[in-house]
Nucleic acid binder design. Structure first.
Length: 743
DNA sequence: AGCCTGACTTAGGATGCCAACA
DNA sequence: TGTTGGCATCCTAAGTCAGGCT
C-alpha cells in the first residue's frame, strides 16, 4: 500500500531574525486544523439523520418533478427516434474518421456557456438486480448459518467479496460496514432464522468469499468461444447507451453505466470508508436533454427523477450519492468534441501563462518582503505552487481524509533546516505522500519560519490568511483565468518540452522511446504522481538482483580460470582481477544453492511434462531411472561446486581452457551485467512513479506529436489507442516544429 | 463577504487482456 | 503451451474552482 506516514513533526524551530515588520498573529485568529465545519449545526452529527434529510428532500423534489413531467413523457422507441431525427451527412460511411467533428479546424468560438443546441441520448445503463446466493452459501454467525433477507445478504456479500483485501482488515471499514449492514438487516425484518447478529467478530464471511472465488475461476475456465459469446451479448446490451447525439453528431458517452451499489472504498484514512453506497434508482436520476428530445423510457415500473434541458452544462445524467451527498454525472467520453475543446483550452491557457510568468515571478520574489502579512503569504504560496507544483489545497471537512495542498499546509508538514533547506512531508490528494527535502529561496525560508512562529504549533495553518479563492483572485490580476492549477499544467508541459529538447535525434526507436519516457518521468516526479508497487515487484526485483549476482559469480569464476592457466596475467593486468575475491564463501554458497536448486527443478519439471505428453499420446513413459540419472548429474555439479569452494580451484569446460576464449566470455558477461543492471535500475525507479497521469492530463499532447514527427517515432509507441482518440485534435494540428512555448 | 453547491478535471487502484518468455 | 508480468482500460474517488445565495 501507499506510504502514509503520520510522522512526528520534528520541531526544528530556528528563530530567524527578521527586519520587516509582520503583522502579529494572534492565537485567536489562527485557524485550527480541525476546524469545526461552518455548516448548520444540525448537519453535523449522525449520518442517519443526514441520509433521512437528504432522502426526504430528494423525494419531495422528485414528486414535484414527476408532476411537472408527467404529461411530457412520450413512449417512443428511443433509439429509432434518435436515429430518425439525425440527418447524417454521409449516410453510408461507417468509418468514424469522416464522422468526427473537426472542431479544431473551425473558427474559434468565444462563447463558453452554451455547450450544445441539441442533445439526445438513451439515459444510463442500470446494473443488474441483485441475485440471491444459492442456499448453501451463507454468512455464519457464531458458527451457525444465517438466513438473511436478500437486501442484507447483498451487503454482507459486498464485504465477503473483499475479505482478503486490505479494506476488510481496516477497523474503520469494518465498523462502517457493520453498522450499515445491521441497518439494512433491521429495515428488512432481521434474520429469518432468529439469529441475532450483534458482533462483527462473530461473523464469518468465508463461505461467501469462497463462492465468489469459485465463480471467478469458473468464468476464467470458459472456452474462448463461450467468452466471445458472452461479450457479444454484453455489447448488445450496452450499445444503446454508448453513444449520444450532440448537435446531431454521434459522440461517445463516457461512464454510461450507473455505479452499482457497493461498500464505499475511500482512500487513505477516510472516516466513511466501508459505508454502504446504496443502489441508485431511476427516481434518483436527473436527465439532461434538449427540449424536443424524446425522453428515454425508464425501466419498467419506474420514473425518472427529473428531466432537465440545460444546455450550459455537458452532463447527460446526474444523481446524488449517499456517501458525501454530492453529485455524480454521466458525461461524454474523453474523445468527444466537448472534452477535446476544454482540453485544448486548458493547454492554451497554460501556454498563455508564459507571457506573464516572468512578471509574476518577479513580483512574488519582491513581495516576499512585503510588510503586509497577506502579501507575504500569497508570495510564498505562489512560489511553492510555481516551483514545486503543489496543488491549491482547499479546506476539507472532518468527514473526509485529512489531506492537504499548498494553502492548507499545516505547521507539522514543513520542517526547516537552516540555512535554506525545507522538508515537506504531508499527504496530498488521494492520501499520496509528498516528501521532498529541498533548497528554497532565502526569503522564502525566512517567511516560512515566520509562519511557524509561536504561538503557532502543530495543527495550525501555515497560511492562516490564505485560501485558494484569495490566491486565485490575486492571480487573476495578472492574467484572466489564471488559477493555481494552471501553474501545474504550465510547468509540467514546459518541463516536458525542455526535456525533449535535450534528446539527440539519433539511435534506434527504442532508444528514443526510452528517452521520451525518461522525460515523461521527470514530469511525473515533478507532479508527484505515484503508484503503489505492484504485487510482484519485490520478488521480481529480488530475482533480477540474484540474476546479476550470478552473472558476477560466473565472471569471477572465469577470471579465476584464467589465472589458473596463466599466473602471469595477474601482474600484467592487476586491475582486471581486482574483484576476484569480492564474493564471500557464504555468498558463493548461496549462489551455488540457487543454481543447483534451479537445475533440479528444471529436470523434475521436464520429466513430468514429458510424461504428461507421452501419456496423452499413448506413448511409452520415461522410466523413473531417467529422472534419477538426470538428477545424478546435478548432484555431480553440486559436488563440483562444493569442491571449488573448498580448494579455490575452478573447473571449466575443456573448450574454455584458453585465456582468449575466457576473456571473450567475460566480456559477454559484462555486457549482460550492464544491461541487466540498467534494467533493474529502471525498474526500481519506475516502480513508484506513475507516468500515465501526466501524459493524460498535464503534458500538452502536441509536444508528443511534434516529438514523434521530428524523431520519426511511430505515434502509437507513445499514445495508446484511447489516447490517440482523445488527442486527435493535437495529432492533426501539430507539426514537427510545434512548440509549447518559446524557451 | 463568506459559504456552499454544482460541475468540471485529475487521480490511483482493480481488472482484464495480451504478448513475451521459459 | 502455460505462466506471468506489463500495459490498457475501467472505475470511481478526490481534487479545483466559479458562481449563486444568504
Amino acid at each position: 500500500m501507499t506510504v502514509k506516514p503520520k510522522h512526528e513533526s520534528s520541531s526544528s524551530e530556528e528563530d530567524i531574525p527578521l527586519k520587516a515588520t509582520v503583522s502579529n498573529t494572534k492565537a485567536s485568529t489562527l485557524k485550527k486544523v480541525k476546524k469545526v465545519r461552518k455548516v448548520a449545526p444540525k448537519k453535523e452529527e449522525s449520518s442517519e439523520e443526514e441520509d433521512d434529510e437528504a432522502l426526504s428532500k430528494a423525494v419531495k423534489k422528485r414528486k414535484k418533478v414527476r408532476k411537472e413531467n408527467a404529461s411530457k413523457t412520450k413512449k417512443i422507441k428511443i433509439e429509432d427516434a434518435i436515429d430518425s431525427k439525425v440527418e447524417k451527412t454521409n449516410p453510408d460511411d461507417k468509418s468514424d474518421d469522416s464522422d468526427t467533428f473537426r472542431w479544431w479546424e473551425q473558427e474559434e468560438n468565444g462563447d463558453n456557456t452554451v455547450k450544445w443546441v441539441t442533445l439526445r441520448h438513451n439515459g444510463v445503463m442500470f446494473p443488474p438486480e441483485y441475485v440471491p446466493l444459492p442456499s448453501h452459501v451463507k454468512l455464519y454467525y457464531d458458527g451457525k448459518p444465517v438466513d438473511l433477507p436478500p437486501q442484507a445478504e447483498e451487503v454482507a456479500g459486498f464485504f465477503g467479496g473483499l475479505l482478503e483485501s486490505d479494506h476488510a482488515k481496516n477497523p474503520v471499514f469494518q465498523k462502517n460496514f457493520f453498522k450499515d449492514f445491521l441497518d439494512v438487516l433491521n429495515e428488512n425484518g432481521g434474520t429469518r432464522n432468529n439469529i441475532e447478529i450483534k458482533s462483527f467478530e462473530k461473523c464469518d464471511f468465508t463461505k461467501m468469499f469462497e463462492y465468489y472465488q469459485l465463480q471467478r475461476e469458473e468464468k476464467k475456465r470458459l472456452t474462448p468461444q463461450e467468452k466471445k459469446l458472452i461479450k457479444l451479448e454484453k455489447d448488445k446490451l450496452e450499445e444503446p447507451y454508448k453513444f449520444c447525439y450532440l448537435d446531431g453528431r454521434k459522440e461517445q458517452v463516457g461512464n454510461f453505466k450507473l455505479e452499482p451499489p457497493d461498500l464505499f472504498r475511500g482512500r487513505g484514512a477516510h472516516p466513511k470508508t466501508g459505508k454502504l453506497k446504496r443502489r441508485v434508482y431511476p427516481e434518483d436520476i436527473v436527465l439532461n436533454l434538449d427540449k424536443d428530445a424524446p425522453i428515454p423510457v425508464p425501466p419498467a415500473g419506474h420514473k425518472w427523477g427529473e428531466i432537465r434541458h440545460d444546455n450550459t452544462v455537458q452532463w447527460l445524467c446526474m444523481w446524488r450519492e449517499n456517501i458525501s451527498n454530492s453529485f455524480k454525472y454521466v458525461r461524454l467520453a474523453a474523445n468527444s468534441s466537448l472534452k477535446g475543446m476544454s482540453d485544448y483550452k486548458k493547454f492554451e491557457k497554460a501556454r498563455e501563462l508564459k507571457k506573464y510568468i516572468d512578471l509574476i515571478r518577479a513580483e512574488y520574489t519582491k513581495n516576499l518582503k512585503s510588510k503586509v502579512m497577506l502579501e507575504r503569504q500569497i508570495s510564498v504560496a505562489t512560489y511553492l505552487i510555481d516551483v514545486f507544483a503543489l496543488r491549491a489545497g482547499g479546506e476539507k471537512s472532518e468527514d473526509e481524509a485529512d489531506t492537504v495542498g499548498c494553502c492548507s499546509l499545516r505547521y507539522e508538514h514543513v520542517t526547516l533546516k537552516p540555512p535554506t533547506t525545507v522538508v515537506f512531508d504531508f499527504l496530498g490528494k488521494d492520501s499520496i505522500r509528498y516528501y521532498q527535502e529541498v533548497e528554497v529561496n532565502k526569503q522564502v525560508f525566512k517567511n516560512l519560519s515566520i509562519f511557524k512562529r509561536p504561538p503557532k504549533q502543530p495543527g495550525h495553518q501555515l497560511f492562516d490568511r490564505l485560501d485558494p479563492s484569495i490566491l486565485n483572485k490575486h492571480l487573476q490580476n495578472y492574467m484572466p483565468g489564471l488559477t493555481a492549477k494552471v501553474f501545474r499544467t504550465f510547468n509540467a508541459s514546459k518541463t516536458m518540452q525542455d526535456q525533449l529538447d535535450l534528446i539527440p535525434n539519433e539511435g534506434t526507436i527504442a532508444e528514443k522511446l526510452m528517452r521520451y519516457n525518461a522525460a515523461n518521468r521527470k514530469v511525473a516526479i515533478l507532479c508527484n504522481h505515484q503508484r503503489t508497487v505492484t504485487r510482484g515487484h519485490v520478488t521480481s526485483v529480488q530475482k533480477a538482483t540474484e540474476k546479476i549476482e550470478e552473472l558476477e559469480w560466473a565472471k569471477i569464476r572465469y577470471k579465476k580460470a584464467i589465472l589458473q592457466l596463466d599466473k602471469s596475467q595477474l601482474k600484467k593486468d592487476p586491475n582486471f582481477f581486482r574483484e576476484i575475491d569480492d564474493l564471500t564463501n557464504e555468498e558463493q554458497q548461496a549462489i551455488h544453492k540457487r543454481l543447483i536448486e534451479r537445475e533440479r527443478e528444471k529436470y523434475n519439471k521436464k520429466f513430468i511434462r514429458e510424461n504428461d505428453k507421452r501419456k496423452f499420446e499413448n506413448e511409452e513413459l520415461l522410466p523413473e531411472s531417467d529422472l534419477q540419472s538426470w538428477l545424478a548429474s546435478v548432484d555431480e555439479l553440486e559436488k563440483q561446486y562444493a569442491e571449488e569452494l573448498e580448494s579455490g580451484i575452478v573447473t571449466v569446460k575443456p573448450a574454455l581452457q584458453d585465456v582468449d576464449k575466457l576473456r571473450s566470455q567475460i566480456e559477454k558477461l559484462e555486457q549482460r551485467i550492464a544491461t541487466s543492471s540498467l534494467q533493474l535500475k529502471d525498474k526500481e525507479e519506475n516502480s513508484t512513479v506513475a507516468l500515465s497521469t501526466s501524459k493524460i492530463s498535464y503534458i500538452d499532447p502536441r509536444l508528443s506529436v511534434a516529438f514523434c514527427k521530428k524523431y520519426n517515432v511511430p505515434l502509437e509507441k507513445v499514445f495508446t489507442k484511447a489516447l490517440r482518440e482523445k488527442f486527435q485534435w493535437a495529432i492533426e494540428s501539430a507539426d514537427a516544429n510545434w512548440r509549447f512555448c518559446e524557451t
